[in-house]
Design a protein around this nucleic acid. Structure first.
Lengths: 202, 202
DNA sequence: GTCTATACGGCGATAGAC
DNA sequence: GTCTATCGCCGTATAGAC
């Protein structure tokens, strides 16, 4: 049990990195073992199977990275401040971990059942309070009456999609990695503005 | 040479369907052969390898489905009409073929090099004329000065992303397939409105 | 052009020694 | 807990008969 915690962590970390880079199906357990610097059999010792390892990693990635975002969505902030915070926090999170979106997209395509079963959805979509806010403010007339489902989809689309097509954007605009990041930073202000503007009464 | 054209087509069609449904990596050549009702060896006879078959199919899918969209973008329509037509045509195309987005997302994750090499980009991003229009109208003051790169990203994000997370949207809102399609139809008007609103001077 | 048969390598997984 | 060795399976690809 001495090196146990350590080895398990090494496998976990190596697999996480490889799954995100190459995709689950193109990563073999031998890849993982060699990257972790451990023996092939240990993967099966700690995690029962590759698929089980993947489940563990996937759940971890989602819950870890969405916790703060959920907090913002369910906080007591006013609508404008909430939107601004959410956009900023989401973009910061993805900038720190730009492979998360393509990885997640690939997984949706790969195993829908798994995703719909897991808490993933409530993690990404715990929007009751936020939706209610939009409806309430619409009734009060502070903002235009807005369909919360469409609004939320608009919001996460504009935030996350650029990361899904990052290679295309970079190639098309001949961007370096830094330039892409600048572009993404610009989007914080831009996306917030678009969202607020389309809710404005008038 | 008699049944040749026919067999090649059968392989092509079966593979296209399987690649889109299960993903390229989870589709075996045996799957393809059995679905096409032909023998395993024939895949190698007509297409040199699975990877080569995939390239053929991918190029075909992209060029076929983006031709009309490119035409609209480079047409002589006014900005508002152009945006409206583009949104409608894009959503119609994806509704007819809802697996196209998740498939394409998975491919970007799988093989970036391939994508940036191919004409894919110019097909998806032949936006010079469109961008120019946005800049020109901004200078004239007909619309707000708008950054064309961000605007274009906003547009394709809001159009395509819902298809990428279709299972999540359906599960969350307890939608049937028809209800999802209704939701998507609503987005035609909604997205157009958001885009036009955020360009409005005022 | 189409089929049968098969080679070959890599995969995930486990038994068993230490 | 960790390693070596190996199993059985399935993937792609090809040789050769028809």
């Amino acid at each position: 049990m001495a090196k146990s915690k350590n080895t398990e962590q090494k496998i976990f970390d190596a697999a996480t990195e490889l799954f995100m880079e190459k995709g689950v199906d193109r990563t073999s357990v031998r890849d993982i073992a060699s990257k972790a610097g451990i023996n092939l059999a240990l993967m099966n010792y700690y995690f029962r199977s590759k698929e089980n390892l993947f489940d563990t990693i996937f759940t971890n990635l989602v819950t870890e990275n969405t916790r703060e975002l959920l907090k913002i969505l369910n906080s007591d902030m006013g609508l404008e401040e909430k939107i601004r915070s959410y956009v900023n926090a989401y973009i910061d999170m993805l900038t720190a971990n730009p492979l998360l979106v393509p990885f997640f997209m690939a997984i949706i395509h790969r195993s829908q059942e798994k995703i719909t079963q897991m808490k993933v959805i409530s993690n990404l979509y715990g929007t009751e309070k936020f939706s209610q806010q939009i409806v309430d403010e619409g009734k009060k007339g502070t903002i235009r009456r807005t369909d919360p489902s469409h609004f939320f989809v608009d919001m996460i689309s504009m935030i996350t999609f650029p990361f899904a097509i990052r290679p295309l954007i970079m190639d098309r605009n001949e961007m370096s990695e830094e330039e892409f990041n600048e572009f993404i930073q610009e989007r914080k202000e831009h996306v917030t503005e678009v969202l607020l503007k389309c809710m404005m009464p008038c």
